[in-house]
Design a protein around this nucleic acid. Sequence first.
DNA 1: AAAAGAGAATGATCTATTTCATTCTCTTTT
DNA 2: AAAAGAGAATGAAATAGATCATTCTCTTTT
Lengths: 231, 231
Amino acid sequence: MKTIYETDQEFICDIQSPCFQTLSLEEVELIRASKTQVQFRKGDSLTKQGAFASYVLFVMKGLVKQYVEGDNNRSFNLKIIQPGEFIGLASVFSKNIFNYSAVAVTECQVFLIEKDAIRGIIKNNGLFGLSIINRYCEQNTLLFNVLQNLHFKQMNGRLADTLLYIESLKKTFPDIFMLLQRKDLADFAGISVESTVKLLKVFEKDQLLVLQEKDILIKDISKLEQISKNG
Amino acid sequence: MKTIYETDQEFICDIQSPCFQTLSLEEVELIRASKTQVQFRKGDSLTKQGAFASYVLFVMKGLVKQYVEGDNNRSFNLKIIQPGEFIGLASVFSKNIFNYSAVAVTECQVFLIEKDAIRGIIKNNGLFGLSIINRYCEQNTLLFNVLQNLHFKQMNGRLADTLLYIESLKKTFPDIFMLLQRKDLADFAGISVESTVKLLKVFEKDQLLVLQEKDILIKDISKLEQISKNG
DNA sequence: AAAAGAGAATGATCTATTTCATTCTCTTTT
DNA sequence: AAAAGAGAATGAAATAGATCATTCTCTTTT
């Protein structure tokens, strides 16, 4: 399931991540000593909501779906995590438990970094602390947005939002729609799969998009934005 | 609407907040120089969602309702902010805009602290940074919980949650229920006022609580917890 | 004291969305 | 090549909860 390997060659590339630029040599050494590089295959779980968390994950390569789980196998998708992002930061401080689940959407290369290493560095390097705080703020803002969409908008608006979000990833990851199925879109929009399928067809009839095999070609962004706004 | 005043006497008490204990004298001086103490009356707005945010608020005394706003005057309540908590921390780093609104539930005494002061101290004092990060984590965890309640539970479970939450505040603030009206409970549970009223009556008939004038006396916490869990 | 207004209570209707049941269309397995 | 299975598509029925309309009960205003 996971392949663990670690070489100096690999190590060189992670230092180059902008997030680690503020670290001193000593601190880089600390991270280096307490990290493991892991490869996940498509569909593998990176974190499981509710599980004990002793490490933080840092995505080097690949895409990861972040989602929360409810009863009866229900899920709600929060975002697609991209290279350069952390997973499980919140568990470093408050409770030792993952707030959410994460699963590999593509093959992924990920660092596992021990919580204590991160914590230790923040304590001594305020600049690194600030960069981590920024991550928290982003997650926070995302959650506020998601909450508002979920509570104040209905079906059409929420699916429009979802489509716009995925479309925005398409520039960097052209095959993103092909990696997701109807169930994934439904869980982003917080609606049932059947409603998603029906609504996609309606959107297609209204010339907002074209359903082409597994791909979805967005044709009228501004109209989708309007739907997102009004509904 | 707001009364601004600042005396050395007032100042002495804010240093005693546990959150500011890790600061050096120099840093305390910095906070001191860039803060203003403000008094809000019941019903006054402390922050307005979407407004420009150049400062952070720190609640010294009183209770504040934190909520998000949607279209058509709809709101969703997140929590009751208590003395010792910050308001608007996220705006310090990511975008300069308040993610949420906050309104005084009782008369409040609040510090306004300039963002730059907070930011400067975090950069130099890792320990203070950690304590601030903890705040972010708490807000984060709250948002995850709220999201799950809203999406995976229905009416009964959500109202049960709300009642348990407010009840948990009752130890410290015995008159908390009297400060909230049906609309507030509805907005915590994310349901309509009418549904809230009807459901409260059902809960009363089922001996889970007693509606006594404006107060609500919770009688069967464990049954409410069960309802919260199942639905 | 009368009038007005806000919040609470209650029943009837309406509706957005889910759930269920079925068919279709591929891809994968045997 | 046949069989099996997963995802997608589609219509009909069911339902949770909102909305609407009205009454009731206080408190506040005049």
